[in-house]
């Protein structure tokens, strides 16, 4: 028996909206500790990793580990029927479920929707991602980072990110010209201005902006984002989800051979 009730169902809607341009189908693994999901884009350049802890749910029960193969497109169609203020419950009684039940309830419990989504059997090709001690970590406003990526992608498809003790520089070079945006450490008490740099080792890495713009669809999940980098390593972009878990994106760099 598996049942997970999320008080703020809108969080689940936002997660699916954030990943639906990146991955087509995912395996959600449910265990006693919560839900986890890892999936790569078709080019194996980017990866999304979701972890939702059981104690972040209003109710959570998972008698034995199960894997739920979902089509993101079909999941989106079902979630469109959930109101932003609804609770969302996922449920199945079977051990090898062929479908997953969804219940959407409004605050007054005066409207209850029930859907059943057919499940897919997907081969679980998952990457072993070691816990990395990143040498450059940047915490900043997710809206600000999203804006920087959007603005620079009108000049080039590629951005170079260079960190130093006191600032991070986003540089682009394209047919029309070049540009850079330098953001300095800023302990402002205003969220949108605060920038926190932890630079043990400076890095200079190059990434495709179209992936960063896809990752930034997760801005509605968290007002801050962290950029985690080490030389010659994929970038890890993390959106923490209050009291529930985190949504992480990994992006392989572009490297001159």
């Amino acid at each position: 028996m598996f049942e997970a009730k999320l008080q703020q169902g809108v969080i689940f809607k936002k997660i699916v909206d954030a990943i639906k341009d990146l991955v087509k189908s995912v395996n959600i693994d449910a265990s006693t500790s919560g839900l986890s999901m890892q999936a790569m884009d078709s080019a194996h350049v980017a990866l999304v990793s979701l972890k939702l802890n059981e104690n972040g749910f209003k109710d959570y029960r998972c008698d034995r580990p199960i894997t739920l193969g979902l089509s993101i497109e079909n999941l989106s169609k079902i979630l469109k029927c959930a109101g932003n203020d609804d609770t969302i419950t996922l449920q199945t009684d079977e051990e090898e479920p062929s479908s997953l039940k969804f219940f959407f309830e409004n605050q007054q419990a005066s409207k209850i929707s029930e859907f059943s989504l057919n499940l897919m059997s997907l081969d679980s090709e998952s990457l072993g991602i070691p816990d990395t001690d990143y040498s450059s970590v940047i915490q900043m406003s997710s809206a600000e980072f999203s804006r920087i990526c959007k603005e620079l992608s009108s000049i080039s498809e590629t951005v170079e990110i260079e960190t130093s003790k006191e600032s991070v520089k986003f540089s682009v070079q394209g047919d029309i010209g070049a540009g850079s945006i330098t953001v300095k450490n800023n302990q402002s008490d205003k969220d949108v201005d605060r920038v926190d740099l932890q630079i043990d080792q400076p890095v200079k890495l190059t990434f495709a902006l179209r992936y960063l713009n896809m990752f930034n669809k997760a801005v509605s999940l968290s007002s801050t984002v962290s950029l985690n980098m080490s030389e010659e390593n994929p970038l890890m972009v993390e959106y923490k989800i209050d009291d529930l878990g985190s949504l992480r994106f990994y992006l392989a760099p572009k490297i001159s051979d």
């Binding site: 790569m40 080019a43 194996h44 350049v45 980017a46 990866l47 090709e125 998952s126 990457l127 072993g128 991602i129 070691p130 590629t158 190059t206 495709a208 390593n233 994929p234 990994y250 392989a252 760099p253 572009k254 490297i255 001159s256 051979d257």
Partner: peptide
Amino acid sequence: QKQQKRLNTFYEFS
């Protein structure tokens, strides 16, 4: 010209 790498250059399939 920089080449886009793939994640399996950095991480092993588990």
